[in-house]
Structure formats: C-alpha cells, structure tokens
Design a protein around this nucleic acid. Structure first.
Length: 674
RNA sequence: AGGGGUAUAGUGUAACGGUAGCACAACUGACUCUGACUCAGUUAGUCUAGGUUCAAAUCCUAGUACCCCUGCCA
C-alpha cells in the first residue's frame, strides 16, 4: 500500500484547477480540494482512470449505531456517495461501534436499510453497484488498534493513567493552566503491563485508561493527553464479550479511515478541533515506518485527509439523536418511524421519495458556514419530485353527496383520466361516472364568499375529466349541515371539455374544476393528515425545552374517505397525487378493507383571497444578530433611531423595514469605540 | 479569557484582483381541465473601519457578531 507523502492541508498552494467537465453547477469547496489533490496526484489520485487503477476518491459514512438516521445524516451520505461517484471511487458504510453501552443491533439493521434506500436511486450504494466499497465495523479492527496502541506505548507516546474520570476533569486545567497527570512519565514497560492487565479484565471500569502522551499545555484541549482506551465491561452487539477495553473515538476513527484507505474523510465542523489529533495519531504510528517497510516499525500506514463541512439544520425541526430518542421515549411521537419524524425511516413512511432528499442536498450546497435551511425548501423539493412521478388519483377526504337530476337512471359511463399530465408515458385509464357522486365538502358553499369559484347555488363547475354541472339546489339535515347537493349536467361537455361559447369562436369558460368520485364505485379508508410537529422555527429556543413548542394536534385522521378504487391494489409506499389535495402514500399499517394513507405534503396553495403579504419579522434577539450588536444594546438603538410606532407595539418584534432602517442609522451613526 | 472556525439580497449559495450572478421565498402578470404545474417580470446583498491598487466581496491591518472545544460520548 504505497501512499504518497502526506501533505498537511496548510501546506497547500492553490494549483491550477483541472477542467471540471460539463459543469452544471460550480464546484463546492470539497470538490475544489479534491480536484487540487488530483492535480497534485495526492493519494495516488489520477482523476482520469476508472475504479482502483490506481484509485479514485474513496469516502465513507461512519455512523454510530446508537439511534436511527435523520435527514441531517442524509446530507453526509449524499455528499460522500456523490463524491465517490463523481471521482471514480468507492463508498463505504462503516459502523463506528466503539461504545457498546449505547449501541444496538437493531440500529445497525435500521441504518443499513436507510442508507441503501437513500443511495439506491444514485445507482447503488455501499453494498452493490459500481461504487460499492463495502460494509465495515470498527469493532473488527480492535485487534489491529491494540497492536498500534502497544506500538505507541513502546515508542513512549502513550501511557497507562490511573486517574479517575473526576480526577482527570479536576486536573484538566484552563487555557492558561496546563493539565497534569502524575503517571505520564511512567516507564513504557509498566504502561505495557498495565495495558495488558486492562485488556485481561484485571481492572474495574473507570479505574485505568491508556492516554496519548501529547501536550498537557495545549490550548486545544483535545491534545491534552487524550484517552485512547477505557475499561468497559459491556456486551458488544458484534464482538459480544470478547473485549473489556474499548477505544475512544479520536484514537479509533483515524485508524479506521487509514485501514480502509479512505482518501477524503468528510465530517462535520465540530470535528475541526480534532483534526490535529487525528493527524498526530497517524504520524505517531508512522514514526519509524517507511514506505518500503525498511524502517524499524515496518511499512507506513495510510493517512486520510479530513475535511469538515457544516451539517444540515432545518427550521421547525429537532435534529439530534438525543432529542429524537427522547421524543420517542416520552411518547411525543409514535416511534422512530412516525411520519412526522425527521428520521429517514419516518420520512420514508411519510412518503417522501429519496430523490427529494437528493434535490434538497443539491439545493443547499456544501459550505463551512453554519446555516439553517427553511423546511419549506424540503417540502418544495418533495413536491417537485412527486409532481413528476406520482400517478393521479381521484379521492374525496370529506365527502358531500351530489345527485345529478338529469342523469339517466342507472347509467354508468367511463371517462378517460390522464394518469399523470407531467409524464406523458404514464398514459390514461378510465374512471366510472354516474348520477350519484361525492365531492369535497369544502368545494360547496350555500352562500359563496367573494373569490370562491367552486360550487354554489346557480354556479357551474367542471368535474375533472367528466362534465360541467350546475347546482340547482341543496338539502340540509336536522343539524343544519348540507347533506346533499342537486345538480344538472351538460351533455355537451363530455370529457370535461368546454363547448364553443355563444359566438362559436371562443370556448365557454368555467372557473372551477372539482375532483369527484362515483358513489357506487369507491372504496372507503382512513387518511392521516400531518401538521408540522413543532410550531416554532427553532424548537426549544424560547423556553429551553422543545416540548413546549410541540404542535397540539399535529396529526388528524380523516375517516370515511371516499377513495379511488385504484388504491385497493397499491403497494405500501406507493405515492399518489390526489387531485387538488396533495401527495399521499399507503402506510405499512394499511390492510385490504382497512386502507390507511398518509398525506406526504399538500399541493402548494395560493389562497383565493388576496394573500396577506408575508412580512418577515425579527425577535429582539434576531434583530440584534442581524445588526451585529449585543441584544442589550438594542433598546438604546431603537430609542435613538426611533422606528415609528414601535414603542406602542406588543410584542416588540421588528419588521424587515425597521431592521433595515436601524442598519442605515447604524451606518450613519457608528457606535463609539471601546 | 486561550484555541479552532465562519461572515455576500428575507433564505441558501456563486464570483479565486476586472460588469456582484443563480436558486428558493415574496410581489406583478400570462397560461391552465388540479386555486397545482409552467412561463415572464419586479423588489432586494458584499459585517464595520482604515489601508494597498488604475481596479477589492476577493489582498493587508484593526475591530464586531455568531458557531465549536475543558466526556473514560461520537
């Protein structure tokens, strides 16, 4: 495994960027780094060859199996897989299973399924396809890691430390005061003996660690002699009871990447502070090693390059395994795969196709800047994909009976129905039309409001693909609710086509088009409608507890829905667009005769009345942030700049215009220095 | 406080010393057998202050704001 001399990123000089090919979009910063690496032939990259000759970019997704994956992880998976695909390489799935006290086999299984689901439309995944790198377990490297650890002990670069966790914390020091350990100058032989005893199970949990001997005074606390191994008598989901010492992330992770010869080790921003440590460990192992194996310690090991990017954050969403787990445990949701959850299994059950996640990731890009993505972008990506792919169906969620008085008794007519107007290859099917139908209750108003152009007494509307009907009256039940609408149909409008108007030149127009279903040709079922799980942009920001921002009724079940008969044979997960209602999918709990559907997302809706202008408002905290001042200086600024009417308003949220005015004022009246 | 990062329209991102562009959102309008889709147009931006330069988002200096780091978690 010849590997070129590792160059630290700091030594990089901007090289000529190779022709990027047909660039649909500019390269993101990671692609730029990779193309420079190719230009300099680092890691043996040539960029022009196929797989492994000598090699392309090799990436990996390294989850800890201590929970289910969420949409934040999806960004990392898409990034890693896409880079391997774009640069003729491979993609590994590797479980970073170094802490058995938190990990479970069911999470391993769930994560494998989620990653496969997500990467499948990209042409494969970790297990199959042209870029499959394979499935790996950190725990299968434990023996090798142990050997490396012993090597560092012999080199005087690691030592056994008998400080307890509390003592280590107490001796951690401060930026100005170095940490201390009375054991760091212990002879290597003694450390070796203790390390062997640790492994042999002769020491209780927490009594002993192996620590790297780096720098107790480093301003980077990760370098203050970090723990490499701890004693932990715990059952491991993969290695069972074979080990009672487990490596720490910092020690293990770089070795895992090295053993798999990962070229670019992509991770999130919070690991930036760990990169020097990652590099230190590999360099320490390589001290005394040579590329040809002639050195005293053998052949040099692989040194991957770590690159950090900003993780995905979404408004109205909680994205941390800890909080997600708590939501499940407290019953805030029905489980990890509740369709309201941002987990990949929840999103999948909700009916979102993986392509929507790919589209979102392309949309938001890859940078090092912490940003929060508006959840609406994800919703829009979902609509965009489903609009192109979902067959249409005619379903009525809240049925209202319509009788067509001039329809010949008992007559059934098949009307042609375009399965997906956005996809000509999908073709047509037929739908039975009769004199007794259901329409959506909200599509009829006895006394129509202004701008309502659906059904009302005397009004004419089109029934999609069928006929124009005119309302001649309605009946109400004892409760005063409308329970029947009477209409006549116009035979000249068969197929829903508008007949020539009075002048025989312009077609007669009708404003509204309604969806419908024949009362005698429908199946009933339940449909679940979801609202956002949280009703605050940043759940928990207000009170410190996300539970305070839970939407009270974020799930609504419609019973007795009148569904298109085509749904009877649809498989679980099949997506449909219910005309004018949104996108829906069959839930796994659905049964023949007891259909259950989930609404994935509504259609985009512009309201009939003049939509009220959505004015962006700022909380005091947001305004201060926007103006780059401390929040406590905001009141004084407002007093000084005085946006009209602000003082009378409650709550004291600022409008966009007011924030702009304050910014202008600040520009004209810069704060005094000091 | 020390260290590590990041600042470009409302939001997300390009521009690599040479015309600040794109997408989403918003707003106008057109089209429409889904109040969907599609299409056209409008509004709006380089954190601040100095400096270098014919020319600065970009280079230099000094500030400001935000994120990460003091687990035997990852």
């Amino acid at each position: 495994m010849a590997e070129p001399p590792h160059e630290h990123p700091a030594s990089d000089t901007p090289g000529p960027t190779p022709t990027p090919g047909p660039a649909a979009r500019p390269l993101n910063f990671i692609e730029q780094i990779i193309e420079q690496d190719i230009a300099h032939a680092r890691w043996g990259l040539t960029g022009t060859t196929g797989l492994g000759t000598p090699r392309g970019v090799h990436t990996r997704f390294p989850p800890e199996p201590n929970g289910y994956l969420h949409i934040g992880h999806a960004k990392s998976i898409c990034l890693n897989y896409s880079l391997a695909k774009k640069y003729h390489g491979r993609f590994n799935l590797r479980f970073d299973d170094t802490n058995p006290s938190k990990e479970e086999q069911r999470y391993v299984d769930g994560i494998k399924a989620d990653v496969s689901w997500l990467t499948e439309p990209l042409g494969g995944g970790f297990a199959h396809g042209p870029h499959a790198g394979g499935l790996f377990l950190a725990s299968s490297y434990f023996e090798q890691m142990e050997e490396f650890a012993k090597e560092l002990i012999k080199k005087g670069k690691a030592y056994a430390c008998q400080l307890t966790a509390d003592e280590v914390a107490a001796r951690r020091g401060t930026p100005a005061v170095p940490a201390t350990s009375p054991y760091r100058d212990r002879p290597p032989e003694e450390s070796m003996r203790l390390f062997r005893e640790m492994k042999a199970g002769k020491h209780p949990d927490g009594s002993l660690t192996l620590r790297a001997r780096i720098d107790l005074a480093s301003p980077n606390f990760n370098l203050r002699d970090p723990v490499m191994y701890r004693v932990l008598h715990a059952h491991h989901h993969s290695t069972a009871d074979k080990w009672c010492i487990y490596p720490m992330y910092d020690w293990a992770h770089g070795i895992e990447d090295s053993l798999e010869q990962i070229t670019h080790s992509i991770c999130t921003l919070e690991f930036e502070n760990h990169r020097p440590l990652y590099d230190w460990f590999i360099d320490a192992i390589n001290e005394g090693r040579t590329p040809d194996g002639s050195g005293p310690w053998g052949t040099t090991i692989w040194h991957s390059r770590q690159v950090e990017f900003a993780k995905l954050q979404l408004t109205y969403t909680v994205l941390s395994k800890r909080n997600l787990l708590k939501m499940v445990q407290t019953g805030a949701v029905a489980g990890w795969d509740d369709p309201r959850m941002p987990t990949l299994c929840g999103i999948r059950r909700r009916g979102v196709p993986p392509e929507a996640i790919h589209l979102l990731c392309e949309d938001v890009g890859v940078t090092k800047f912490d940003s929060v993505i508006d959840i609406a972008r994800f919703e829009n990506a979902t609509r965009t994909v489903l609009n192109k792919s979902a067959p249409r169906a005619m379903c009525v969620l809240d049925p209202l009976r319509v009788v067509i008085d001039n329809w010949p008794a008992g007559r059934v007519e098949d009307v042609e129905f375009v399965i997906n107007p956005e996809d000509p290859s999908s073709g047509k099917r037929t739908l039975p039309f009769t004199g007794e139908l259901f329409i959506e209750r909200e599509d009829f108003m006895p006394e129509p409001s202004k701008g309502f152009h659906r059904l009302a007494p005397g009004a004419q509307v089109r029934l999609r693909w069928a006929y124009f009907i005119t309302c001649t009256g309605f009946e109400t039940g004892p409760d005063g609710k409308v329970n029947l609408v009477r209409c006549t149909y116009d035979p000249a409008t068969r197929g829903g086509n508008a007949p020539p108007g009075a002048d025989a030149l312009t077609n007669k127009k009708v404003k509204g088009t309604l969806h419908w279903i024949s009362a005698h040709h429908t199946i009933t079922g339940h449909v679940r409608l979801f609202d956002r799980l949280f009703n605050a942009e940043a759940p928990g920001e207000r009170t410190g507890n996300w539970a305070d921002d839970l939407t009270p009724d974020s799930i609504k079940v419609c019973t007795g829905c009148k569904l298109d008969p085509i749904l009877a044979d649809a498989p679980v997960g099949q997506a449909f667009q219910f005309e004018r209602l949104g996108y829906f999918t069959i839930d796994p709990d659905s049964r023949p005769g007891a259909l259950l559907l989930n609404r994935t997302i509504t259609l985009k809706e512009s309201t009939p009345e003049k939509p009220k202008a959505a004015v962006r408002t700022y909380t005091p905290a947001e305004a201060a942030h926007e103006l780059k001042i401390k929040q406590d200086k905001l009141p004084a600024l407002i007093d000084a700049a005085g946006p009209a009417g602000f003082a009378e308003r409650n709550p004291h949220h600022l409008t966009l215009d007011e924030v702009r005015a304050l910014r202008q004022w600040l520009k004209a009246n810069p704060p005094a220095k000091g």
